[in-house]
Design a protein around this nucleic acid. Sequence first.
DNA 1: GGATGTGAATGTCTTCACAGCT
DNA 2: AGCTGTGAAGACATTCACATCC
Lengths: 206, 206
Amino acid sequence: MRKISESTVRRLSLYLRFLEQFDAQGHTTVSSAELARRGATTSAQVRKDLSFFGSFGKRGLGYSVPELTGRLREILGLKRTYRVVLVGAGRIGGALAQYPGFRQRGFHVAAIYDKDPRKIGSRWNGLVVRDVRHIASDLKKEPTDIAILVTPAEAAQEVADQLVQSGVKAILNFAPIRLAVPADVAVKSVNMALELETLSFALANR
Amino acid sequence: MRKISESTVRRLSLYLRFLEQFDAQGHTTVSSAELARRGATTSAQVRKDLSFFGSFGKRGLGYSVPELTGRLREILGLKRTYRVVLVGAGRIGGALAQYPGFRQRGFHVAAIYDKDPRKIGSRWNGLVVRDVRHIASDLKKEPTDIAILVTPAEAAQEVADQLVQSGVKAILNFAPIRLAVPADVAVKSVNMALELETLSFALANR
DNA sequence: GGATGTGAATGTCTTCACAGCT
DNA sequence: AGCTGTGAAGACATTCACATCC
C-alpha cells in the first residue's frame, strides 16, 4: 500500500467520529463539504484522504453514512477489539486505565503492571496491579498487540524491550524518551509538557 | 515573524530537553549532528530549525550549550513561569494537576475547577477544587494565560467561552471536540483515543 | 579541519479545478 | 444540477551541498 501520512490517518479518525455524530442525528448521507466543515478542513482534502483507499461516494449525492463508517472502521483497524496492557500504575496510568474513551473504541485495558511493591496488588477499577516481572509470562498466555507505557523515563526502554520480546506490536508511550524498537513495532509518543510548550511558544510569538 | 511550522516548534522543545541532558553530562558545546542523533533527525534539520531565529553557533565548533539553552527558552517563551488553571477534576484532570513535568517546565497549576458539587471542595495535592462558576471572578483577580480543559465534550465549549472571556490566551484541550475561539487564542487539542487509533491503523496496514 | 548557515533541489502535502458519473 | 474522484499546480517541509567563517 502507498505510504499514508500521519495527518491523513488522524483526519480519518476524526471523520469517523463525525460520521457517528451525523448518524446519531439521523443523516443517511453526507458530503465531503459537510465533513470538511466539521473538521475545519476542505472538501478536497476529505476526498483526497478517502481516495487513497478507494471510491466510496456517489457523484452528485455524497457518501452513505453507514457505508463510509464501515469502510473507515476497516481502514483504521477498528473492526476488532484490542487487548491492551498498561505499564505504570501512577496517577496518569491509573487515570488512563479507567478512561472510558478507550473501551468505547474497542481498546480493552486488560492488565496493569508496576514495579513498585506498594502498588502491586492494589486495584484500579477492578483491575489488580500486577508485578511487572510477570509481563512476559502473562503475555505468553494472553497475546497482546498494544501496550500503553506510563513509566518514568529511566524504566521505559527496559519495559519496552520486554513488551516487544513478548510480541507487542504497538506502544503508546507517555515516557519522555525516544524508544528504540524494531521496525515492525509502531510507537506513538505523547508528551504533555511538550504540548504546553507549543502553547507558550504561541503566547511568546505574537 | 515568519510563520514557523508546528513540527519545528516541537523539535525545538526536544532540542531544549537534549541540551539540558548534555549540560548535566558536563558538555559545554554541542554540534547539530549530536542534537540530530539524539532526536532522530538530521543535522541540516537542526540547523534549519535554529536558523529561523538567528545564528547561534560557531562554525567549526558547534553551539554553546548554555547559550543555546537560553536562546531556546527565550524562543519557546519559557523564560517566565505561567499560571495555569485546570477545569475538570476527573481522573485525568486530577492526574494532570499533579503531573510533575508541568511544574518542572514552569507551568504552575494554580487552581482546579469543577461543576460537580461532590468534587467541589475536595483536594488534589493541596489544591481545593473550586466551583466553575468562580472562574470569571477568580481570573479577574489573578490573570492567567493558560488553561487546561478536561471536561466532558458537552461542557467544553461553554467553559472555553468563559475562559476566553476571562482573558485566557491559550488552551490545552483534552475534550474530544473542536473548540471555537477567537483567532488570538491558541488551542492545542490532545485526544488519547485518537492516538491509539493511529496505532491500530499501523497494525491493520502492514 | 570542522561545523555552521543557507540557497537550491528535492520530496511531501494541500489546494485547485474540472471531467465524469448519478 | 450536484458532488465525487483525481491529475496538475501550488505551497510547504526536508534534504543536499557548499561557501563561509572560527
